[in-house]
């Protein structure tokens, strides 16, 4: 598990970045591409799937977002941002050329080396898919390092499915399968309808030599974990990336605790053996 590059910089003061591009990803969801300047470019020259960063909408505040890009594919830092509160509303208001603040990279990362040779089952729900995109890219870019790759990708409605332009690449990569599902279809939808838990039970991946990676709303993580248990997956095979309301991101403000763990520094990636016990962040 890598940590961010520790520098002498004040960890509370963000690096400055310019919005290189802003793309629509879905209903009230945008992809922001941030080009870092000066010290930020150095800090983010290396980061890993699962890490997050604080994005500042100056004048309003900042909020944590999973990094949705990988350095291998992109020199631009990408975030998928759903408009929900004060900070995200301001970020949605910004356009190409506007300046934002970035603090990070923060948190731990997915142990991609430990996944080598294993079958991977990846479950992304809604905006929760964003921090999983670098995992997908890493696997596809190093295909022979990993076993069979099953992606279950879900949202409440087709307009909330993100990275739709990448599904063809995911689906057609060797030894990969992609399953899509929505709770509420529209007229053009011709894939699965139903919750991701129902889809998971239907696909019923084998727990043999496999790991699972889940991200989505807390209640989804909880119920997916129950289905995984029924399918025979052991807690040490199941990885999640969690979210919480955060403010400092560096383990000082005390807010994001899950038991004695802090999601910002001990996570956001956890094995279910570590977090199964204290359930408060799920329900």
């Amino acid at each position: 598990m890598m940590n961010k590059i520790i520098t002498d910089e004040n960890p509370m003061v963000p690096f400055l970045g310019k919005l290189k591009y802003v793309r629509d990803l879905g209903n009230e969801i945008k992809l922001l591409g941030v080009e870092l300047m000066d010290g930020g470019a150095l800090a983010f020259s290396e980061y890993h799937p699962g890490q997050f960063a604080f994005v500042s909408a100056f004048g309003v505040g900042e909020a944590p977002f999973g990094i949705a890009s990988t350095p291998a594919r992109s020199g631009i830092l990408e975030f998928a941002i759903q408009r929900l509160g004060t900070v995200t509303t301001e970020l949605h208001r910004l356009g190409q050329g506007d300046v934002v603040g970035i603090r990070g990279p923060m948190g731990n990362c997915f142990p991609m080396h430990d996944f080598a040779g294993k079958n991977i089952i990846l479950l992304g729900g809604g905006i929760g898919g964003a921090p999983l995109r670098p995992v997908i890219h890493t696997i596809l870019d190093n295909r022979k390092d990993y076993g069979h790759f099953t992606i279950l990708w879900a949202a409440r409605h087709p307009s909330l499915l993100i990275f739709t332009d990448e599904y063809e690449e995911w689906r057609s990569s060797p030894d990969c399968e992609l399953h899509l599902t929505v709770d509420h279809p529209d007229q053009t939808w011709d894939h699965n309808v139903g919750l991701i838990t129902e889809l998971l039970a239907k696909v019923a991946p084998s727990p043999h030599n496999a790991v699972t990676i889940t991200c989505g709303p807390p209640v989804m993580i909880y119920y997916v974990n129950q289905v995984l248990n029924k399918l025979g997956f052991q807690p040490e095979q199941n990885f999640v990336t969690l979210e919480a309301r955060m403010h400092c991101g560096i383990g000082k403000c005390g807010r994001c605790n899950l038991g004695d763990k802090l999601i910002c520094v001990d996570g956001p990636v956890f094995k279910m053996t570590e977090v199964g016990q204290f359930l408060e962040s799920y329900l």
Partner: peptide
């Protein structure tokens, strides 16, 4: 941490 909505996210989840 004792106050209402201390851990409430913008999405509304309040553990």
């Amino acid at each position: 941490c004792t106050r209402n909505a201390y851990r409430r996210t913008a999405g509304g989840h309040d553990p």
